[in-house]
Amino acid sequence: MAEKTFKIIKTEFVKDKHFDSLEELTRELHDYVHWFNHIRIHGTLGYVSPIDYKLEHLKKVV
């Protein structure tokens, strides 16, 4: 799982980018992770975001 996550970060986030400072990298990585978890839809999750998928799953469990 970790290898797949790092591959996605390298191919979608880091590829062909240059960061002028650690602060810029940190800010943009935070924005990317937020987008990835809250906005980007995932085919393996039924074309919903991971957060939406998790919330829907929790409704069924509780």
Rank of each mutant, 00 (worst) to 15 (best):
Thr26Ser: 08
His57Gln: 11
Tyr32Pro: 00
Asp16Lys: 08
Lys15Glu: 15
Leu29Trp: 06
Glu12Trp: 12
Pro50Trp: 07
His30Tyr: 15
Lys17Glu: 12
Lys17Thr: 07
Lys7Asp: 01
Arg40Ile: 07
His57Thr: 10
Ile8Arg: 15
His34Gly: 07
Asp31Cys: 10
Thr11Ser: 06
Tyr32Gly: 01
Phe6Val: 14
Ile8Phe: 14
His34Pro: 00
Phe36Met: 05
Thr26Val: 15
Glu24Ile: 10
Val14Cys: 08
Lys60Tyr: 09
Val33Trp: 08
Gly46Cys: 01
Leu58Trp: 06
Asp31Gln: 13
Ala2Met: 04
Trp35Pro: 00
His42Asp: 04
Val62Leu: 15
Ala2Asn: 09
Leu25Phe: 14
Phe13Trp: 04
His30Ile: 10
Leu22Ile: 15
Glu12Asp: 10
Lys59Asp: 02
His57Ile: 03
Glu24Arg: 09
Lys59Phe: 00
Ile41Lys: 10
Leu58His: 07
Gly46Trp: 00
Glu3Ala: 11
Lys17Leu: 01
Leu25Glu: 03
Lys60Ser: 12
Glu28Ile: 01
Asp31Arg: 13
Thr44Asn: 12
Lys60Thr: 03
Leu25Arg: 09
Glu12Met: 11
Thr44Ser: 10
Glu24Asp: 09
Leu45Phe: 02
Leu45Val: 01
Tyr47Ser: 09
Pro50Thr: 07
Tyr32Asn: 05
Ile39Thr: 09
His38Ser: 07
Ser21Trp: 07
Lys59Tyr: 02
Asn37Met: 04
Ala2Asp: 01
Glu3Met: 14
Asp16Cys: 04
Asp20Arg: 11
Lys54Tyr: 12
His57Trp: 15
Leu55His: 08
Ser21Ala: 06
Leu22Tyr: 06
Ile51Asn: 05
Ile8Cys: 09
Lys10Asp: 14
Asp52Thr: 03
Lys17Asp: 02
Glu23Phe: 07
Ser21Pro: 01
